[in-house]
Simulated scan of single mutants.
Amino acid sequence: MNKNLGQNYLIDENKRNQIISFANVNEDDVVLEIGSGIGTLTIELAKRAKKVIAIEQDSNICEILNQRLKKQKIDNVELINDDALKIEFPKFNKIVSNLPYQISSPITFKFLDYDFDLAVLMYQKEFALRMNGEVGSKNYSRLSAMLYFKCDVKHLTDVSCESFIPKPKVDSTVIGLTPKEITLTDEEFETYSKFTKALFQHKNKKIKNALIDSRHIICNLDKKEIKSRFNDIENEKLEKYLTKRVIVLSPEEILYISKELNPIFND
């Protein structure tokens, strides 16, 4: 096993079956699995699904899984030996994965670019708490704000570190993501995404200072020019927001700020 690839395999059969039941996998489903490992979930998913797209970066582990699939005469698994962050995913409608912890954030953001019906994903417990962090709490984060407009986030179950081999140092949590009917255009969400990223680089600072310090994420203006444009703002409601701290902004308020400030930053 390669610790650098975050390989911790689920050996608790009850938890494995619980995860699969949460996903309600049936014969019409094409399931995407990231970090399939030796097939703990893959093989059981394949018995229920129309097809499983299993992505595994470690070529040695991938070959072990390939041999297991052949031995059990399972032919509905498309096994891809590659880096999930660098490839386009084939068409799927559900995601079920025990995710490698070190890619939890980028792979989750990548999922948001795809259409799917349901995702049942295992994360490090601390990360899972940030996915559904309440505004103003220590767990409120860019992740919470980004997921807000895209998915309903549901805590499904916790998984003890004792359920894995080798045993990780932390417990895990299984999260369900159900896409929302998004009301934003692609352009609006892209703008919202940039401002959210810029703001949460400095989540304990005042909004104005956070945006000045992270201006490069949104535009190519220098610090002096940004300050000058802030001084020219005549919107009283917006001016009040600029004195608040990032951590207390709701996603709706971030959206408002992004819509109001984007023309100022990019004209």
Rank of each mutant, 00 (worst) to 15 (best):
M1Y: 12
K94W: 11
K240W: 03
F111L: 14
K259Q: 15
L112P: 01
E253V: 09
S97H: 01
D28F: 10
C161T: 08
S36W: 01
I64G: 09
K50P: 08
F230W: 06
T196Y: 05
I264P: 08
V248N: 10
D222W: 04
Y192T: 00
K223E: 15
P106A: 02
E13G: 00
E78W: 00
I107C: 01
N139R: 05
I182R: 13
I207T: 09
V77N: 09
S144D: 11
Y241N: 04
A54T: 02
D83Y: 01
I74D: 08
A119S: 13
I64M: 10
V77W: 09
A54V: 01
N139G: 02
L184E: 07
K206Q: 14
T185H: 10
S172G: 03
I11R: 13
M146D: 00
P100C: 01
K206S: 11
L143D: 01
M131E: 09
E63Y: 12
Q7T: 07
Y241S: 08
V77D: 09
N98L: 04
L255D: 06
N266G: 10
D213M: 12
L221F: 09
I207P: 01
K47P: 03
L85M: 10
K240M: 11
G176H: 09
D12Y: 01
K15E: 15
K205P: 04
L65A: 07
K259V: 03
N139Q: 14
A49D: 00
K3A: 13
A198T: 00
Y256M: 05
G35A: 04
F127V: 12
L32M: 07
N204M: 10
E239L: 15
S163C: 13
V30P: 05
A198K: 01
P168V: 00
F116P: 02
Q67P: 03
L199D: 07
V77K: 04
I55C: 03
T108K: 05
Q57E: 14
N98I: 00
D158N: 15
H155E: 11
I11T: 15
K86A: 04
K154N: 13
V77Q: 05
N76I: 06
N17Q: 13
K208T: 10
K71Q: 15
G6E: 06
F200N: 00
I53H: 06
S193A: 09
N209F: 04
Q72Y: 12
K224S: 14
I19P: 04
